[in-house]
Design a protein around this nucleic acid. Structure first.
Length: 734
DNA sequence: GTTAGGG
DNA sequence: CCCTAAC
């Protein structure tokens, strides 16, 4: 079966159809290909035309590639000119692609400058993703277009990048073939007839310096011929595109897996087993989501006896209770349904983001889990419910906005879902209320470009972060001056008074997220802000009205890197990209410790390894631990401030939170250890002081005691009175 | 301001 | 240890 899909046209449905059809059928494939996802870099014009991405955009992708430490190949027909992405620049690539090891077949070698039809043969048993740069009325948007279910764009390994051109030197586009969740079982090939209109040299393809691509597989030659040659060698040398990926190994997923209980490391393993490749993502939530999605969508799973339920991968046989789950994830639907309700495959978390309202309305049963969730509340009564953090929401909404754009594309292209023209959709994009969440947009003026950013996700409502320093974790070599300046400013201005409340001023986190939503404190950070502003090209820095500059996002997540710095002038973009890369590689700036170092707890520690984590860590002594245990036994776990005041009065450096944390750790330790030996806590040689078993035992006892007492609601009164007593005692002391 | 929990 | 939502 051959399905021709036009990128330009109403292809979404087709793609989706194909994907689904083939995940449920078992068509044999002409070729075995392990890299099932195709990324295409195009720009969507306001009138709906799709034009190839510019070099600038490509560059971002390249930086992404670097960041992801992925290998990159350029493959081209020897006879054709090949755009070479090299250290020198990604520029002038006019590439016409002939073949790619049977993966791609360019059918229109002779295509005129107006049109290029590149026929791609790719396995259709895959998830389709497309990255689209969308330029709508000078509003540069980025879309992640997911034509098949949810697209978790972040974690993909880019394997391949091809550049196509249509004869015009101003025209090029990129096809990225990325390895992703490969369902290699039936590699039926799908033909994509990608019609690219290359007519308008919208932007001059100015040769632009590209970030170093030392890892990639091409030479730095300047001439096309050489490039072509080298890349040709690549192909001829038989280095097919398999490369990075290993196959998913579901044999590692034996029995029942509850993702919620897994550590990051375990999640990583599961991830690997699921997707056949490693990930470096540390975000548990993401990993869980990803894995469960991967599993849910994976034909490997669907053909095996596993199903996904409630964050668990369980054997079908074991699974009888079907409806009374806590409902984090939708059940794997009957196969037959898939075509009609593709989204039912999606985890519920994402379901609301993906499924158009209409579909949901028409299929209310899909909403089972979110509707009457009495059992949910039951389960949650035990623990305090934490709503997702703002950061999470923000990031989610960011992804969502991308998704929504993709969805809208779908809508526009799919007569079933919407009849409005693409154009109007694109224009409305973020003003469409999605699932009750109104996504508003505002137009930021960045670098002279209009960039539409979702307000809702960018506003930081609480106090501005103080860890702006993270912003300066730039490549030291490149950013020496800024670093120095900041240093200076730290020393001279000796930091904002800061209500005197916050003693730990130097909050520089190693986690990208922190940088991510950075906002400058206008009063204190004037200098730095100026600097960055300057670095950004002095282009109308957004007023410090509580909205932040989105340009300053920095993250090691490829996606983030990718989505950054659009609209930043070339020179600065270069810088920005470099910065991002620097971040991604844990380039760290050696901070000098704040001058307050001595007086209190403000110490920043450039950690030997991963990065820059300032901790004023004070190891817990045994006596402290004992005191804590005693305090807990006396006042009860949870009364941390009491314990702090009464038992730790002299330990000024131990906050109640510290106590709480320590107790938590003790608890963990005690639970982890007791089943086994009773010797000295046989933990790994963490360097941490081993906690004597007796203490752990006591911890355990206390914990059990607490556990027995607390669930009883009637005890709250007792607890209340005790607290009162404590308070009285306390006042007596004072 | 404290506490619970996630990271 | 840090952060932040919930209380």
């Amino acid at each position: 079966m051959e399905t021709v899909v036009e990128v330009e046209g109403n292809d979404e449905a087709k793609l989706k159809e194909c994907g689904i059809r083939n995940s449920t059928s078992s068509l044999s494939s002409p070729k075995q290909i392990s890299d099932p996802v195709v990324y295409k870099l195009v720009r969507l014009e306001g009138d709906g035309r799709i034009v190839p991405a510019t070099d600038d955009e490509l560059m971002e992708v390249e930086s992404l590639l670097i960041d992801d430490k992925c290998q990159m190949h350029i493959v081209a027909d020897p006879g054709q000119t090949v755009g070479c992405i090299s250290n020198e620049g990604s520029s002038s690539g006019i590439a016409q692609l002939e073949s790619l090891e049977g993966l791609l077949q360019s059918r229109n070698k002779e295509a005129g400058p107006d049109k290029l039809n590149a026929r791609l043969e790719v396995p259709d048993n895959w998830w389709h993703h497309a990255v689209i740069f969308c330029n709508v009325e000078s509003q540069l948007l980025k879309l992640v277009k997911s034509s098949f279910l949810y697209s978790a764009f972040e974690e993909i390994s880019l394997l391949l990048m091809l550049r196509l051109a249509c004869g015009s030197p101003y025209c090029s586009s990129a096809y990225l073939i990325v390895d992703s969740q490969c369902c290699d079982q039936h590699d039926k090939l799908l033909h994509i007839d990608a019609k690219l209109q290359c007519e308008i040299p919208l932007q001059e393809t100015v040769p632009s310096p590209a970030p170093s691509l030392s890892e990639s597989h091409f030479n730095q030659s300047g001439s096309f011929g050489e490039c072509s040659h080298s890349s040709d060698k690549l192909v001829a040398g038989g280095s097919t595109l398999s490369v990075v990926t290993t196959k998913p190994d579901f044999s590692k997923l034996k029995g029942e897996i509850c993702l919620d209980n897994l550590s990051i490391k375990e999640l990583h393993e599961t991830f690997k087993a699921t997707f056949g490749r490693e990930t470096t993502v540390k975000d548990k939530q993401w990993l869980k989501r990803r894995i469960s999605m991967g599993l849910t969508n994976s034909c490997d799973v669907s053909v095996t006896s596993f199903i996904i339920k409630d964050n668990k991968l369980v054997k079908k046989g074991n699974e009888e209770i079907s409806n009374c789950m806590d409902g984090s994830y939708a059940e794997d639907p009957p196969i037959g349904n898939q075509k009609d309700l593709p989204t039912s495959l999606v985890s519920q978390l994402d379901y609301h983001q993906v499924v158009p309202e209409k579909i949901r309305l028409e299929n209310p049963n899909l909403d089972d889990n979110s509707g009457s969730d009495d059992h949910q509340t039951e389960q949650r009564a035990a623990k305090r419910v934490r709503k997702p953090t703002k950061r999470y929401i923000e990031e989610l909404s960011e992804v969502e906005s991308k998704e929504s754009n993709g969805r809208l594309m779908n809508l526009a292209k799919n007569p079933e879902h919407g009849l409005i023209s693409l154009k109007s959709h694109v224009r409305l994009v973020r003003n469409v209320p999605l699932d009750g969440r109104t996504v508003v947009t505002r137009l930021d003026s960045l670098g002279g470009y209009g960039i539409q950013v979702p307000c809702v996700s960018r506003v930081r409502r609480s106090r501005p972060r103080k860890n702006f320093m993270a912003l300066l974790k730039f490549n030291p070599s490149g950013m020496g001056m800024e670093a120095t300046l900041v240093k200076k400013s730290l020393g001279d201005h000796s930091f904002p008074p800061d209500d005197g409340k916050e003693s730990r001023v130097l909050k520089a986190s190693s986690t990208p997220e922190h940088v991510h939503h950075q906002k400058f404190n206008p009063s204190a950070m004037g200098m730095e802000a100026t600097l960055v502003k300057k670095a950004l090209g002095d282009h109308s820095f957004p007023p410090d009205d509580g909205k932040e500059s989105r340009v300053l996002k920095a993250s090691s997540t490829p996606e983030h890197v990718h989505h950054k710095f659009i609209g930043v002038p070339e020179k600065d973009k270069q810088f920005s990209v470099m910065s991002a890369i620097g971040l991604g590689h844990n380039t760290e700036l050696k901070f000098i410790n704040s001058s307050r170092d001595s007086d209190d707890n403000v110490v920043t520690v450039p950690t030997p390894k991963g990065g820059l984590r300032r901790k004023h860590h004070r190891a817990w002594t045994l006596s402290e631990v004992m005191k804590l245990v005693e305090g807990v036994s006396r006042y009860g776990a949870g009364r941390w401030s009491e314990i702090k005041r009464l038992a730790f009065a002299s330990y000024s450096y131990r906050t109640s939170v510290d106590l709480k944390d320590k107790w938590r750790n003790l608890l963990k330790a005690s639970l982890a250890q007791t089943p086994q030996d009773n010797g000295m806590n046989s933990r790994k040689s963490t360097g941490a002081m081993p906690i004597p078993a007796p203490i752990l035992l006591k911890v355990r006892e206390l914990a059990e005691k607490q556990a027995q007492v607390l669930p009883n609601l009637s005890s709250t009164k007792i607890a209340g009175s005790t607290r009162k007593n404590v308070h009285e005692k306390q006042t007596g002391f004072l």
